[in-house]
């Protein structure tokens, strides 16, 4: 059965291909008549850029029945890819000669690449987050870590009280404290390796042989809390990745739109 999401994408692709077909036909027609195709492709491209930017506006106008954001998103993806074709149709080259056109191209390529990267991130990361079997709101991660740290610290104090030995406490302040202070091994989490888990296992393991029996339950609890923190770290790294790519995509896009508008003005002033 075709899911509604696939149907939407199918429609979007049909639309995009049809639109591209019309534009290419027009392009050929104008080109055959020795007309100026750059006017057609340029305005088509600018329209797509404006449409792509409207996606952001749609997010702000969520109170209006402007269609589902998922449809907009599908259109954003499909028309974004369409714009690459239009872009090359318009410029006829991969790398322009004038400085400002080069800046324009850089911005376009930048926005494109970050967009495609972002799309890939958004498709891959959620599945990995599920595998943590944990859920936490990104904004609450510092609080969660603070809570774990507080619990760990009181655990260590209790352990010292109960056992009368400071072995674990020393180990904690020397080594484990570093781990609990903030999210760690972010790159490892991004790339899906288990550096955090390994570190935890290693550092819990090296102290175990020096502990008394009464201290061992505290060590196990410490390990447990460390594992929970490891999951939170994973969420921090992955959710952060899903947020941070926009930090590149958005400025590139706004810069692109601005410079494209300037380009439009320049063309009208100088050549039309």
């Amino acid at each position: 059965m075709v899911s509604s999401r696939m149907r939407v994408y199918l429609m979007c692709w049909l639309f995009a291909v049809a639109a591209l077909g019309i534009i290419v036909l027009q392009y050929v027609r104008i080109d055959n008549a020795l007309g100026d195709t750059s006017l057609l492709t340029g305005y088509a491209l600018y329209t797509t850029l404006v449409f792509l930017a409207l996606f952001n506006l749609r997010k702000r106008l969520s109170m209006l029945p402007l269609g589902r954001a998922s449809t907009w998103f599908a259109l954003h993806i499909v028309i974004g890819l369409l714009s690459v074709v239009l872009f090359w149709l318009h410029t006829g080259t991969f790398w322009s000669l004038g400085l400002y056109e080069q800046v324009l191209m850089l911005l376009f390529y930048g926005a494109c690449l970050t967009g495609i990267t972002g799309y890939a991130i958004q498709r891959i990361i959620p599945a990995r987050l599920i595998q943590t079997e944990y859920e936490v709101i990104f904004e609450r991660i510092p609080g969660e870590i603070a809570e774990i740290r507080a619990e760990v610290e009181s655990l260590i104090l209790r352990c010292t009280d109960v056992s009368g030995a400071d072995t674990l406490a020393r180990h904690y302040t020397e080594t484990a404290d570093w781990y609990f202070r903030r999210p760690r091994f972010l790159l490892s989490h991004v790339f899906g390796t288990q550096a955090g888990e390994h570190w935890l296992h290693q550092n819990i393991g090296i102290v175990r042989r020096y502990l008394r029996d009464s201290e061992l339950p505290y060590l196990d609890r410490l390990y447990e809390l460390g594992q929970r923190k490891n999951r939170i770290d994973q969420h921090y790294a992955l959710q952060g990745l899903m947020k941070i790519w926009l930090l590149a995509h958005l400025p590139l896009s706004t810069g692109l739109i601005t410079l494209a508008t300037w380009h439009l003005i320049i063309v009208h002033v100088y050549a039309l």
Binding site: G98, Y100, L259, W262
Partner: peptide
């Protein structure tokens, strides 16, 4: 971007059109 445009336009340069934000190429 607007600053770049403004700077390049206000110092519309003699002989350095390559730096101007209007020059689409040699």
């Amino acid at each position: 971007v607007i600053s770049l445009i403004a700077i390049s336009m206000s110092s519309r340069p003699d002989g350095v059109a390559g730096l101007a934000f209007v020059d689409p190429g040699p």
